[in-house]
Design a protein around this nucleic acid. Structure first.
Lengths: 316, 316
DNA sequence: CTGAAAGCGCTAACAG
DNA sequence: CTGTTAGCGCTTTCAG
């Protein structure tokens, strides 16, 4: 495979001249430019981007840290990032952590290794203290709010959103309200959900919070548990429309009417929610991803709040 | 940021020695190794992977070409790839083409540029002739069958699957059968659908094939068109469960019973299909992705067929 | 066991 | 407008 000096030799010019035509510099005579161009075509030459990156110290590559690669919410953010990356001619590499701290740090090190220009963290497992040092090597933007000045944020005000939903559920006359979350209390999002719940409804009835719900199947199981409780909830807030869909399935399987016997509201406005007519709260995760990409590329440390919307359908 | 020679100087050894401890070579005295290790820790040093890649000519990075970044089918394959990549310690970069030929070639050039060790093509827009030359620079594996010896394949026998489904629909007594596809006849998949259809049912009634269906909304529109036909189809085969879901929605909106008034069958066994009780044909796209990853990493040019399954629910 | 030196392929002053 | 030259940060012979 030919390299720049082969081309230079064959075109009868110096490597700098070849480099100049490669980078569209002015001050190259038309003849030489043409000659070089011709040889490059003949040899089917392409510059070794690795060498270019090495010297430039920049890769036009952004990494996206996602905990799971099979979660609708993270997928949506990833899609947002991807949307923008195409426009701006960046490449995106996906970095799945499964919430493994060491893995996460390993990915962050790619910044230091000069493999990535920036990293977008959709969800993290390390403390910010562990992460901050890496901001010296490239931009790191978070899809969760943090007031740290070195971190750009494209986030949704989850707490406000949870508060809103619970308020909405309450306004519909519900008192016995249950909810599901993805992770346990180690997760900030779960903590916020619990906080908001308590603010609106007070203490959480035993059995009203079911964690580790990711899929429809998990939702189904959660539905079963919840609807078997002696003091059965009249409304359930699910952490995603698929989970909500599973709950719906179970409820229907025991001939409950929605929302008469049990009200259900999900999150992220996904197809299954549309199909089943489930109310949902749309956090506009695609926009979150798009904005995150912009922040990363512009090395901006701004805090951008993305608005959420409650989608009213008939399940509550 | 410290580099290898800084470390060497500070540890009082040569760069080669540092390089040796970096790469776990034997024949380094314990004292020197310890000294180097110590300085590396103090300086918080990590090697510049770009420089390493440059000299090694290998990146441990695989690219995945997908046409759209918001299509469930391609997402599933991507997830399969991601699953395996974590295990094998590879990074995955996502390359969205929107079926733009030039973009696709640009991505293939990354192989030549030494940015990628291999590329997985989930769907292509260029002819194989345009693609083959790039197999000289890294492994390229396809998620569509091709007999070209230089291309590894992890594929589903789409034609057989379409034949099977249409046969199944026919066995249920349907004669007026419509279907939807994503792309128009420029797409191989569409061509195969049409071919299989004709083999089972003969000519296609005018209006029975609706293309450019990607989302639920598209499905809804397709349902509307199809069910307004004078000779209305009694069964519809949708190219995905979300599209099927849209059709279902429309059918229900005009009070049709499924499958009594119209039978519906989708593809890929997605949540919405489960939620709506739609029969589906599961092409096991995640497995396709996993297998594709293995082929790419092993630089294998094998042809691996992944089996599909019909999921029987009550919509047909 | 260790170090010097020659690159990997390319860019960017610098001096014409 | 063009060529020379010195690196970018690392690996790998080749001699000790």
């Amino acid at each position: 495979m030919a390299n720049i000096s082969d081309i230079a030799r064959m075109a009868g010019v110096s490597v700098s001249t070849v480099s100049r035509v490669l980078n569209n510099h002015k001050y190259v005579s038309e003849e030489k430019r043409a000659a070089v161009q011709k040889i490059m075509n003949e040899m089917n030459y392409t510059p070794n981007k690795n060498a270019v990156d090495l010297i430039r110290g920049e890769t036009k590559m952004i990494g996206v840290i996602i905990p799971y690669n099979n979660n609708q919410a993270f997928d949506q953010m990833l899609h947002g990032v991807l949307n923008k990356s195409v426009e701006r001619d960046y490449s995106i590499t996906v970095l799945p952590t499964k919430y493994n701290k060491a893995k996460e740090i390993e990915y962050l090190a790619m910044l230091k290794n000069k493999l990535l220009d920036g990293i977008i963290i959709t969800s993290r497992s390390n403390n910010w203290e562990k992460i901050i040092p890496y901001t010296n090597y490239g931009s790191v933007v978070s899809c969760e709010y943090t007031d740290h000045p070195d971190i750009g944020c494209s986030y949704i005000d989850r707490y406000a959103s949870y508060l809103d939903v619970f308020q909405y559920i309450k306004s519909k006359g519900h008192v016995n309200v249950a909810f599901t979350t993805a992770r346990g209390i180690e997760s900030i999002s779960t903590q916020q959900t619990i906080g908001a719940y308590k603010e609106i409804f007070g203490e959480i009835n035993s059995g009203y919070h079911i964690s580790h719900c990711y899929s429809m199947d998990d939702g189904y199981d959660a539905g079963q548990k919840l609807l078997s409780l002696r003091e059965r909830p009249t409304a359930i807030y699910a952490n995603g429309d698929e989970v909500a869909g599973g709950i719906y399935q179970y409820a229907r399987s025991i001939d409950y009417e929605i929302p008469k016997d049990v009200a259900i509201i999900g999150q992220e406005n996904q197809p299954i929610g549309i199909g089943l007519g489930l109310s949902s709260i749309d956090h506009q995760l695609i926009k979150v991803g798009e904005q995150a990409f912009d922040l990363a590329v512009n090395k901006s440390k701004q805090k951008m709040k993305i608005p959420y919307h409650i989608i009213h359908r008939l399940s509550i």
